Amino acid sequence: MGCKEAFDSYKFNIFDTAKELKYEFVPNKHCFSEYDNILARLKGYDKDFIHILMCGPTANVLVADLTEIGFRALDLGHLAKNYDWQKKGIDINANVVKFTLPD
């Protein structure tokens, strides 16, 4: 789970080798304002599904709430962006401000 604009901008997707992918997109900004709706959507998945969340501070709260009710969930933050930049040869350290801007 993340914002569509971010995933559309990646040339290299770290999750391309996954057996199965299901994307749930959230707002690029102020994601927490949609929290109840997002949580309800994620609760609709089978509990064997692993939720990988990349939606700012909202991801941290979602992981806590989902794991409390028996789901598997990870907050992987900027992992997908980091992977894309590494594969493109972009120096993350030299671009740290740009790297942490909202996707």
Rank of each mutant, 00 (worst) to 15 (best):
L53Q: 12
W85F: 00
L39S: 03
N95E: 07
L74R: 14
D16R: 03
K29I: 10
P27W: 01
L53D: 10
T100E: 04
S33T: 10
P27Q: 02
E20N: 07
P27A: 05
F71E: 07
N28I: 15
L21A: 04
I92K: 01
K43Y: 01
D84M: 06
G2K: 03
T67W: 01
N60R: 12
E5L: 08
E34A: 15
I50L: 14
L66K: 13
K11A: 06
F15D: 14
Y23E: 07
H78C: 11
I69R: 09
H30C: 05
H30A: 04
A6C: 06
P27S: 11
K19P: 03
W85R: 00
V96S: 08
N37K: 08
K22L: 09
L42H: 01
G70I: 00
D16L: 02
Y23V: 07
D16C: 04
K81T: 03
I14V: 12
D46R: 11
V96A: 08
A80L: 04
C3M: 04
F15E: 05
I90E: 00
P27G: 08
F71G: 09
L74H: 04
A64R: 11
N37M: 07
D48N: 14
Y35L: 13
K87W: 01
Y45C: 08
D103H: 11
S9A: 13
N28W: 02
S9P: 05
Y83I: 08
V96R: 06
S33A: 10
V26A: 11
E20Y: 15
P27Y: 00
H51L: 07
T58W: 01
P57G: 14
P102A: 08
K81F: 08
K19V: 11
F15C: 10
F12K: 01
Q86R: 10
L66M: 07
G44W: 04
K88F: 02
P57H: 03
A80I: 04
I52V: 15
N93F: 07
G89M: 00
N93Q: 08
T58P: 02
K22D: 14
F15H: 10
L79W: 02
D8T: 12
L53K: 12
G70Y: 00
I92E: 00
I50V: 15
A18H: 02
K43R: 12
D48L: 02
R72I: 12
V26L: 08
V61P: 00
K43Q: 15
N93W: 10
